[in-house]
Write a protein that binds this DNA or RNA. Structure first.
Lengths: 238, 238
DNA sequence: TCCCTTTTTTTAGGAATCCTTAATAAAAAA
DNA sequence: TTTTTTATTAAGGATTCCTAAAAAAAGGGA
């Protein structure tokens, strides 16, 4: 079975997580600060890490950066509700997912399962060719539209495009899944990490802004297309 | 259908909740304190729990902690007005959601549905073999008719077909069950997720539209056939 | 901290597209 | 032929999407 490293200075939370996840058949290894986490990571074979952001000694973001120097295992960040700055910082430094406290046990379980599945699926899928798919593709591309997720630069026809954070995230999500059609709800839930609740126009507005920036003729989009009654997609162009 | 355990010492509230939720097709099991709740939980297969925080004998938080020792089903906490301390305490001890009293029936129903959708529908689907059973086959096919449910593309003889959302859903339903014959009522109920109520022509109209798009000769359909007096089917062709 | 700028969300109106209804025609069964 | 069932057609009414602009929130610099 899989070993999960749980890192949080709040012992109650660590214990609670242990209860939830061990019921699902995972084996839990605990750490209470960043330093300890790095030690445990060396000593054990870990398949996934749950990492709190606010911690003494070495906080979650620093710890994550250390981890990422030589590991690509999935990391789920834990952050207190309102510190969404941390969310972004965490995600930009290599987290695979995040969960806000207080969190629902089932949500945590779902995310753990999903991240493990993705990780395991990918690592089995590509023994043959040299490229490691665990390292997510950093440059996303369709037609003449390019997005470099490391530098956060977006280009169309070789020209720089300046997107806002939200616009970037929406485009990134659709570009990572180019060709596939997603409903407004799905887009919202994937980009905001929250349940969508009547947030339909928000997407429409951002879509329009993105189109204004990446499309030659926003009224007849080449990349960001609507599938009437179903959702949106980014066209997959060779 | 789903069984919901409702726990509150106020019988009126329990009865009110029963009325709301049974109208939505849920089966309600009642308990009036924490001890009773734990008993009912042992005796029945419960899919979701609605749990009041303030109760005699054993309060909601204690009860929740007991539950969490060996169950991971979704729990929605009920808390009086503004005691948001309880909310947080409840969530940190493993609640998945909470609703404050007084609550609107619609809000409660929405949260129940959302929690069941997120955590119950999917959880049992992929235990046995590697493949997720909920993940239906992505590409549906019969003869030269192909449907890709990820890209929402439909092709006949290699040519793109543009269907509307409803047409797509009808064809998808019949294609997922190719060869089988469904009555107009069954098609309506499966595609609209509502009781069919004399809405017979609707299907006929859509069927005609689909035929116009996918059939060479709509009057003598090759794929979408009528079984006179019984219903429609999509022919299963190798 | 406050102010200014930028970004995000909300609101509202209009436009495009699709769904449903209803009426009639055609086909199959009785 | 009569009855029942399905097919066809066309027009409102309803959805869904687009657009603009203003309000609200977030970010940045003094």
């Amino acid at each position: 079975m899989y070993n999960i490293l749980v890192v949080d200075d709040d012992k109650e939370i660590v214990n609670a997580i242990e209860i939830y996840l061990s019921q699902e058949g995972y084996h839990i290894i605990k750490a209470y600060d960043g330093e300890e986490a790095l030690e445990k990571l060396k000593e054990n074979e870990i398949h996934l890490i749950i990492l709190d952001i606010m911690m003494p000694n070495k906080d979650g973001i620093e710890t994550l950066q250390e981890i990422r120097k030589d590991k690509t295992i999935p990391v789920i960040m834990l952050s207190a509700k309102s510190e969404d700055y941390d969310k972004i910082a965490g995600l930009n430094t290599g987290a695979d997912d995040y969960v806000t406290k207080p969190f629902s046990p089932l949500e945590l379980i779902a995310r753990v399962k999903s991240n493990i599945r993705r990780y395991v699926d990918f690592s089995h899928a590509n023994d043959t060719n040299g490229k490691n798919k665990n390292q997510k593709e950093k440059v996303l591309k369709t037609g003449t539209l390019e997005m470099n997720d490391e530098t956060k630069k977006v280009m169309v026809d070789g020209k720089d495009i300046k997107l806002t954070a939200t616009e970037y995230n929406i485009l990134k999500f659709l570009l990572e899944n180019k060709g596939k059609v997603y409903s407004i709800e799905q887009i919202y839930e994937n980009v905001w990490n929250e349940e969508s609740y009547g947030a339909e126009n928000i997407i429409a507005v951002h879509i329009r802004h993105i189109r204004e920036k990446i499309e030659i003729n926003p009224k007849d989009p080449k990349y960001l297309k609507v599938i009437w009654g179903i959702g949106y997609k980014v066209e997959d162009i060779q």
